[in-house]
Design a protein around this nucleic acid. Structure first.
Lengths: 139, 139
DNA sequence: CTTGACCTTCCAGTTACTGGAAGCCTCATA
DNA sequence: TATGAGGCTTCCAGTAACTGGAAGGTCAAG
């Protein structure tokens, strides 16, 4: 199976598949001409990665999850811990964003948004309280 | 005012202040020995940046906001549009995270989390539906 | 033989910093 | 006067997880 077939089958861009090989998440075989050749197991692994990434797990988490997936003697406890920690991070992030949202929504609401220069948003940014240490990028 | 004083007064790390100068957000004067010398206006600007970043505005947004702040003839409309778009992005991100949260919470709930290898979380990652195209990093 | 669609590797850029190295500047102290 | 402690400077590299693009090899069809 070529990389473009693997991309179709796994839902991941070919570029991403190459990247995942580079960082050691997959180890596809090579044909005599140097082209990557993906087995069903490789495709499976890529789909696994696509789903785990889609749930917001980091690459590091994905590596750990794949390790547990490969380990027939794993304890589900270990998997659950990873997922629970992830859930905690998601909740923290949602809370952070909701706090942000409340403040920004308040400012937007307070601003007339007409042709005049007076603007409570700028006033608040210029004189308002110092916020939390740092906001994470949204995307 | 030295950079460490500016850091104290604005709440930003000195490293960040140097970075903001590098990307043209501020233009502090220099003393004869080459040290940066921050005026009250510089400090004000840095505090503005700290607050805007704390609300999650991107550096690009901050640049635009500072431009409007400097422009006495601005229309509050323009400021409000920037803030509204930001609010929309925050809302979209919250919705995305809440969807993620629901799925991950369901998986965590379904997993016994004991010493046995059977794990619905791994089963789902291995066989489950393909998720949204890509999840943003949480932090 | 050439064209076009693949494939390969490698390099750079993205966001917004952060850490660290190497080297001045200034002041206080021994 | 030498020295040591901070503070300041610049520059380089690294972060997360890709993505875009250039230069070039491979292969089947016309």
């Amino acid at each position: 199976m070529s990389i473009s077939d693997a991309a179709r089958a796994s839902g991941l861009p070919a570029k991403t598949i190459r990247y995942y090989e580079e960082i050691g998440l997959i180890h596809p075989a090579r044909d005599s001409n140097g082209y990557r050749s993906f087995s069903d197991a490789d495709i499976h692994r890529l789909a696994f990665l696509n789903r785990a990434r889609g749930l917001g797990f980091s690459i590091g988490d994905c590596r750990a999850l794949l390790g547990l997936y490969d380990d027939q003697g794993r304890a589900s406890e270990d998997v659950k811990r990873l997922a629970s920690e992830h859930l905690t991070r998601i909740d923290a992030r949602i809370a952070e964003l909701q706090a942000l949202r409340a403040t920004v929504a308040g400012l937007v609401h307070a601003c007339a948004g007409d042709g005049r220069p007076e603007c409570p948003i700028l006033d608040d940014l210029a004189e308002g309280p110092v916020r939390a240490h740092r906001a994470q990028p949204l995307t």
